[in-house]
Design a protein around this nucleic acid. Structure first.
Lengths: 106, 106
DNA sequence: TCATTGTTTTGCTCATCGGTTAATTAACTA
DNA sequence: TAGTTAATTAACCGATGAGCAAAACAATGA
């Protein structure tokens, strides 16, 4: 559970895994089965993508009977944000811009 | 030059490429030769990593005589920040936190 | 207990990736 | 022009990664 940023980027560098995380971020926790339709791939393929995301610390798993419920990990997304903020001066972050982004989302 | 986020993540998912970008972000533009020591790999290996980063839109190239000078692309880092901000509510961004991050960097 | 549902693991193939050395391209310098 | 420096491209190799189908595991429910 000490995934570094590069591992997270590597995990998100696959379109299907990125889609899975986006789904969990937007629609909240759901089972592996529910996530089946994020891409036209088999259940085993989804399962392995979930494993990669989990090992990268991007998602968490909770067991509910025979289902495994997955949810996005806030700390991981925040870690990526932290990295961008480390270089905020470079890309021109401003409080105005950030405040606007905060207000626009939802 | 319309790299999507997944391509950027994929590029940054390699430790050597991540190190190259970090170097450019921290120390500013430099030549392929200057970047040689970011990792214990050959010049051709560095060159190909630079190509991947360039094709992902993360860095830009400028020619200076026989040198190619590379620099980090602000828009790309901002795009990653934008993505995290799209999900700011989820991971608990606050203006306070962002302001603190802005002040701490430098 | 036995079948069903949900998910993961196994075993396999094929493509991509990262590394190497050698060769090539390009531009400056004597 | 010949030689040197800077960087990329070419050709190859071993490892990794993503996909599938089939098998295995778990938990539920008849």
């Amino acid at each position: 559970m000490t995934p570094d940023l590069v591992t997270a980027f590597s995990a998100l560098g696959d379109p299907n895994r990125f889609a899975i995380l986006e789904r969990l971020l937007r629609d909240g926790a759901q089972s592996a089965g529910d996530l089946q339709d994020v891409a036209d791939i088999s259940a085993p393929a989804v399962s392995r993508h979930l494993k990669v995301l989990r090992e990268a610390g991007l998602i968490s798993q909770r067991v509910d009977a025979q289902r495994r419920i997955y949810s996005a990990n806030p700390a991981a997304v925040r870690a990526i944000n932290d990295w961008t903020m480390d270089h905020a001066a470079f890309w021109g972050a401003s409080l105005d811009r950030l405040a606007a982004a905060l207000n626009e989302e939802g």
